[in-house]
């Protein structure tokens, strides 16, 4: 009897209790599909991504889409006001979302957002960082790890070069960015657990 779905990739966190779990799932899927398509389009524009095998392109996207979305949609999390903006444009306070069952994942999303925003990255830096997030050679199910690793290294070198150029006195930003990668993995794992719980108890 779930009444709420506290993911901002919905138009609203409120779920019609009259609807079946399947139709709730279908609506949720329709809400986040455009965002996932945008991630795929972004991936296609990463130089070298299209040269990976089809299998590895899908594996990287399957494993990394949530993490890319977290980076792309930090703007939905207002750290000062402690609100989350859903797809409808309506904002919900952390307290309200907590009362709907949001827990550790919400807190961790705010922590991540706050730290990432504090780095004041340009659009170009953010885009390159997002490419690094997506092209990770340690994702499961890859068939050609060496190719992914080579692309990953190229992207990391490019990111380091860009950060060094833009912030000559703040090279620590590059280190801080790389340290965001395990944070994103942790968020991804927490999110997967929520999805599993939702699927088992819609």
């Amino acid at each position: 009897n779930r009444m709420h779905l506290v993911c901002p990739m919905n138009t609203s966190p409120y779920v019609d209790p009259q609807k079946s779990g399947h139709s709730i799932w279908e609506e949720f899927s329709m809400s986040f599909t455009p965002a996932v398509r945008e991630v795929v389009e972004f991936a296609k524009r990463i130089p070298g991504f299209k040269d990976l095998s089809q299998h590895d392109q899908v594996s990287l996207l399957k494993a990394g889409t949530f993490e890319v979305l977290v980076v792309r949609f930090t703007s939905l999390f207002d750290v000062k006001e402690r609100t989350v903006t859903f797809l409808s444009g309506r904002k919900y306070s952390v307290e309200v979302l907590r009362s709907m069952g949001a827990g550790d994942l919400l807190n961790s999303m705010f922590d991540f957002t706050e730290k990432l925003q504090a780095l004041n990255l340009s659009e170009e830096e953010m885009s390159l960082f997002t490419a690094v997030v997506l092209v990770s050679a340690d994702r499961s199910g890859l068939e050609n790890v060496n190719s992914v690793e080579a692309l990953q290294e190229t992207l990391i070198r490019a990111l380091r070069s860009l950060i060094t150029k833009n912030h000559p006195n703040e090279i620590a930003i590059f280190t801080k960015l790389l340290l965001k990668l395990p944070d994103l993995r942790s968020l991804n794992n927490m999110h997967s657990e929520q999805l599993l719980a939702f699927k088992v108890h819609p």
């Binding site: 398509r37 296609k44 299209k50 999110h191 999805l195 599993l196």
Partner: peptide, 27 residues
Amino acid sequence: FSDPASNLGLEDIIRKALMGNMEEKQE
């Protein structure tokens, strides 16, 4: 329920979105 991405239908969305790219690569 071991694969949340597949359960979400994510793989299907990703494959369809990649399709143009894949067809291009096969040619």
